[in-house]
């Protein structure tokens, strides 16, 4: 089953008026793989995620997940198929206690179908998930209103929300941005653990050092196009990638 293609993106293109945010991007993702997506700011990484998860409808191209065409389906349906995504900007239900934030995905038809979290058990499931991600169950932290938590906790809360959906494909959009080094160091092994447990991961990240430690393959984007794909070292060695990251030499 290791070689089964779980996600297939074919010639995906998105135009916002005259701007081409994502242009003719194709790639495949195998089950259990850990793919890193990198590229300079504005290169279309977040738009690519939005296209796959249905938050933005593509202009052309196809997204096939587990053999099913999910192009242009609404986000909640795509989430229901097992694609869970985090948000780059912190998004949470700020007025609810942190652990109650996870009730929403736990209440979804997908988790009900998978037989998880019956009525009254959902709180326990939520607290267990948060405990794994550093919200100690015996402290006040998981019970505090989400709006009062620091940034690093909200980022991990978002990750916990993704995991609550019991995803098969986890898409992380710059999870580590704004996190302290110690938080990154604590979260990274958790993500590796999720991957070992069989969850396919696609991770957009600017912290290349951390990403290259866990990702087996990277996809490099620039100006909406895929400019390289392969094992981290090989991909980074490409001239075009060097140019995108470091700029070109001035002639003469």
């Amino acid at each position: 089953m290791q070689d089964e293609v779980i996600l297939k993106v074919q010639n995906l293109t998105k135009q916002f008026g005259g701007v081409v945010a994502v242009e003719d991007v194709s790639f495949e993702l195998r089950r259990g793989e850990f793919l890193g997506v990198i590229g300079p700011n504005g290169s279309g990484k977040t738009t690519l995620i939005n296209l796959i998860t249905g938050f933005v409808k593509p202009t052309s191209g196809k997204v096939i997940f587990q053999g099913k065409d999910i192009t242009g389906k609404p986000p909640y349906q795509i989430a229901g198929y097992g694609i869970s995504r985090s948000f780059q900007m912190v998004r949470a239900f700020h007025k609810l206690p942190a652990f109650k934030n996870l009730i929403v995905p736990l209440y979804s038809p997908r988790v009900k179908r998978l037989g998880g979290g019956k009525y009254g058990e959902r709180d326990d499931v939520a607290i267990n998930l948060l405990d794994d991600l550093g919200f100690e169950r015996d402290s006040f932290v998981p019970y505090k209103v989400a709006g009062s938590l620091p940034h690093g906790y909200l980022k991990r809360l978002d990750l916990a929300r993704c995991m609550a959906l019991r995803p098969e494909l986890l898409i992380l959009d710059e999870l580590f941005s704004g996190m302290a080094m110690s938080e990154v160091a604590a979260t990274l092994p958790m993500i590796e653990k999720f991957n070992r447990e069989g969850i396919t991961i696609m991770m957009v990240e600017h912290r290349l050092k951390e990403l290259f430690r866990v990702a087996s393959r990277v996809l490099v984007m620039n100006f909406g196009r895929k400019i390289a794909e392969g094992p981290p070292k090989e991909a980074m060695a490409k001239e075009e990638v060097q140019k995108a990251y470091l700029g070109t030499e001035v002639e003469g």
């Binding site: 998860t53 938050f55 609404p74 986000p75 909640y76 349906q77 989430a79 229901g80 869970s84 995504r85 948000f87 998004r91 949470a92 239900f93 700020h94 007025k95 609810l96 934030n101 929403v104 995905p105 209440y107 979804s108 038809p109 997908r110 988790v111 929300r161 993704c162 609550a164 959906l165």
Partner: peptide, 16 residues
């Protein structure tokens, strides 16, 4: 209440 706070997150949670 989740829908009031942020409906995109609710959708990402697989709920219509």
């Amino acid at each position: 209440r989740g829908i009031r706070d942020d409906d995109r997150v609710v959708m990402a949670g697989g709920i219509n």
